[in-house]
């Protein structure tokens, strides 16, 4: 099987190790991965802020870049949700692009969705020594992926899984929200960090670079030594 990787702009620029880990996990499972070089950003920031014409420009760019008909794997629920749920909506009245949007929506999968629901794999053969907890990214709720990442984590050898209080409460990232309302967003991420610290883990896992940069930035500010890891980074380890 062959898939195309949509690495997301945040991972590309800020956390390339997430993309690398994703590639390694997929390859270990016998999946060939290619990386369409023209990819940039899926347009979600524009869409969420209401600039829908600009979002359509970026959506068309992404649709063109991934027009090869292959399965697309995204290590981010947020970008996957943009493609799966919002692209068809954005081109609702466009006879040319709507079918293309529907097509890409159908073959795009967030990483844990791809592993568990497409490949049917929960044990990816990973080993990670340590106590970790898991924060549920909000867009996984939108995609209906309520248990997939936890199921993957629980099959990692050596990993001690500690549930997080209010795990599915938003960390306060929300893209432009975090910059428009730093007070509210800051209060949210401070609470999230406090709950994480309470678990006594050495690392917190999430599936989205947005949540990770927010939570990591806050843990650092609090002087905490807890690491933040993308799910792929845990699944990568053997």
């Amino acid at each position: 099987m062959k898939v195309s990787l949509l690495v997301t702009c945040l991972s590309d620029a800020l956390f390339p190790e997430v993309g690398i880990a994703t590639v390694r996990v997929l390859r270990r499972l016998g999946i060939a991965v290619d990386f369409p070089q023209a990819q940039t950003c899926c347009g979600q920031p524009h869409f969420n802020s209401g600039y829908h014409d600009d979002a359509r420009v970026l959506a068309r760019h992404t649709l063109r870049t991934f027009a090869n008909g292959q399965t697309v794997v995204v290590p981010s629920g947020s970008c996957a949700a943009m493609i799966k749920l919002e692209y068809p909506h954005l081109f609702h009245e466009d006879p040319v692009w709507h079918p293309r949007a529907l097509d890409m929506a159908r073959r795009t999968h967030e990483l844990s969705d791809f592993l568990v629901n497409v490949l049917g794999v929960e044990d990816v053969g990973a080993r990670y020594e340590g106590k970790v907890t898991y924060h549920m990214a909000c867009h996984l709720r939108g995609l209906g992926l309520r248990t997939e990442p936890e199921r993957l984590l629980q099959r990692v050898k050596g990993l001690e899984y500690v549930p997080l209080e209010r795990a599915d409460e938003c960390c306060g990232f929300g893209g432009s929200f975090s910059v428009r309302y730093p007070g509210i967003s800051g209060a949210m991420v401070q609470d999230k960090a406090a709950f994480i610290e309470k678990t006594g883990v050495s690392a917190v896992v999430a599936t989205d670079a947005g949540c990770l940069m927010n939570i990591a930035g806050c843990l650092r500010r609090r002087g905490s030594a807890i690491r933040t890891l993308h799910l792929a980074q845990v699944l990568e380890k053997t």
Binding site: C138, D168, F177, Y181
Partner: peptide
């Protein structure tokens, strides 16, 4: 409309 992280809860 902006004072929401669009978390979907």
């Amino acid at each position: 409309p902006h004072a929401s992280s669009l978390c979907g809860a």
